[in-house]
Design a protein around this nucleic acid. Structure first.
Lengths: 154, 154
DNA sequence: CTTAGTTTGTTGCACGCACACCTAAACAGT
DNA sequence: ACTGTTTAGGTGTGCGTGCAACAAACTAAG
């Protein structure tokens, strides 16, 4: 694979990227599977609920929310449809802007979130954090911060 | 969020996990978008082609391949259908096991892969590797290896 | 006030994926 | 051989997502 050298990559660098992809996919699937069997709650739904829970007044504009959960606006529309159908979220109009809608966490949604959160946190610990040495976390945090921010510059 | 403490997580640890998720999704999307506009090749297809290219005789059993690209067997069946339709891959029977099938990289597939690889590698460099300090790679490799392997133990 | 342009959220559509089920082939024990 | 079990791969179906097109509401310029 002389192509690698042409682009200035080592085989090690490429392998690291592939393993990261692999690890991320597998961890995410474990997490989702655990949430699903224990609480019938997909990971994307969990993300939405927790974002709302952390937001002031447990409400967020659809657009803001879509950005935070890395979902397209249309995808979020459908996801909120489902959550609303299950009573975990409600839609409320925005008074200052008639086209705006808030997604609002209901009490039932908060309860469901509280119920699922231990499962989620245990999964993050078991599949991710326990694999890191405790002293590594600071280093990884710094690294991941750079990664999350840098992808904007494209 | 006293729930965090109940599970022995710090807010920093949780934030690191979230940012990693975020970074991974964004990098992957950039990569896929670039492959799509430049070569009309989805990332999953690229992965299959490159796995085949690295395999002995450019062929792999469906089951093996499904494991390597983190796809369900049915998902792989459909993906190979598409690649076969486009002439990038062919199916060949296995003589020693009549129910086995090989996915084989065709010359056209190898050509398409060679064409797309620079785009892919440049993307990996730009969105991922450039963000790492060169001295960090060894450390990250070691870490990611643990992550990729550890998720089996569940 | 009118008109052009932008932003917000939703809908039609097609795609890609996983789950459950199915068939055929291999294997195991009797 | 004969029957039950396992494994390889493919098919039917439903779900979740993004893209493009849309309607409604806001904004800005004349």
């Amino acid at each position: 694979m002389t192509l690698l050298r042409d682009e200035g990559l080592t085989v090690e660098e490429l392998a690291v990227w592939r393993m990261l992809q692999r690890a991320q996919v597998r961890i995410t699937r474990h997490l989702e599977a655990e949430l699903l069997v224990a609480h019938d709650l997909p990971l994307a739904s969990y993300d939405v609920l927790s974002q709302l829970a952390e937001a002031p007044e447990r409400r967020l504009r659809m657009n803001d929310l879509a950005g935070r959960v890395l979902l397209s606006r249309s995808g979020l529309t459908r996801l909120i449809d489902r959550l609303q159908r299950d009573g975990l979220v409600s839609r409320e109009a925005c008074e200052s802007d008639a086209r705006g809608l808030f997604a609002v966490l209901t009490d039932a949604g908060a309860a469901r979130l509280a119920e699922a959160t231990p499962t989620y946190l245990r999964g993050v610990r078991a599949h991710f954090l326990d694999v890191l040495g405790p002293d590594e976390i600071g280093h990884v945090r710094e690294l991941v911060t750079r990664l999350a921010g840098a992808t904007d510059a494209s």
